[in-house]
Amino acid sequence: MTISFTVNGQDRSVDVDPDTPLLWVLRDELRLTGTKFGCGIAQCGACTVYLNGMTRRSCVTPISMVEGSDVTTIEGLSGPEAEAVQAAWTAIDVPQCGYCQSGQVMSATALLQQNGAPTDEDIDNAMAGNICRCATYVRIRQAIHDAAKTLEG
């Protein structure tokens, strides 16, 4: 079955089993490997992308649902919030193994798009779906606060 959608602003069509999760289409078909597989059941957030601007776990999103939609992955992430988040992440060396961090950056950017000055509690609520097995959580909190300050100007 052919399914058409946009990824990072580019038109893409794939001919795959319609039940195929978006995650595996991005990786196996389109070779966008920044989006990671962690659990396959929407528990860890390593596969977080934006579907029509909203965060979405691509591992449980069948590609049939994506027809006509706009998908953004870490490779296409842009805008002031994304830049502030990635700069803050880099400034205090948030990542350890790094495997979950695409998903963390996607979720953190989405949070700042909604809430320019999140409290610790806001951050904990917004980021609770993203597991980091290295437990970089202390620095994730710090980096989100730092990014929010940058955006404030």
């Binding site: 490997t33 490779e75 948030v94």
Partner: peptide, 26 residues
Amino acid sequence: PKVDTKAKTDGQAEFSLDVYLDGMLT
């Protein structure tokens, strides 16, 4: 600053899962 931070922030860091070879089966 760590040498691997930037690539682990923008999705460019390459893990075993990210290796795709011509004609590769899974």
